[in-house]
């Protein structure tokens, strides 16, 4: 007949406890990895959206809407061609990642002007830059606001 040894029981209990703790550790580790991966994926998506918004605003003020100086044969950074800006407002640039929710100007004297505006305002990010606006009456300082909104979110 087998007898239950007190020490053996203790060892079995200890082994069971250690095994339980190990399983719990593995479970929490996997859970944590999953959570971190999911959070990183979300953060990366959001970061990518902001990056696109900033790149769009930067390229707009330095290239797309910038004045071309015929004498110097180069575009003037941060000097916006008002006519070109108005023209682009009617075209409403859009791609599969974001669309332009709004482009607006705020002049030093407090006057505000909306160049273009779209109805969809979900998941938007605003980027503001200081530029010179060149129109027929001359140059003037203004803040240009680009509101970039996510597509299909």
């Amino acid at each position: 007949m087998r007898t239950i040894n007190e020490l053996g029981l203790l060892f079995s209990f200890d082994l069971l406890l250690a095994f339980f703790i190990m399983c719990a550790m593995l479970y929490f580790m996997l859970l944590n990895f999953n959570l971190i991966a999911a959070q990183d994926a979300d953060a990366l998506g959001e970061f990518s959206f902001y990056q696109n918004a900033f790149s769009f605003a930067d390229s707009s003020v330095k290239d797309s809407f910038a004045v071309y100086d015929m004498e110097r044969r180069r575009v003037l950074d941060n000097v916006i061609d008002y006519g070109l800006l108005k023209k682009s407002g009617s075209q409403k640039p859009e791609n599969e990642k974001f669309l332009i929710g709004k482009i607006a100007l705020e002049y030093v004297d407090g006057k505000k002007e909306v160049i273009s505006e779209s109805g969809n305002k979900n998941n938007c990010s605003a980027v503001e830059r200081l530029v010179h606006i060149r129109n027929d009456s001359g140059d003037g300082k203004a803040k240009i606001l680009f509101l970039m909104c996510g597509v299909g979110k």
Partner: peptide, 13 residues
């Protein structure tokens, strides 16, 4: 393991 920070710092620009 439990004290590993669950929330990563959100990067912004």
């Amino acid at each position: 393991i439990l004290s590993i920070p669950m929330q990563n710092k959100m990067e912004d620009l």
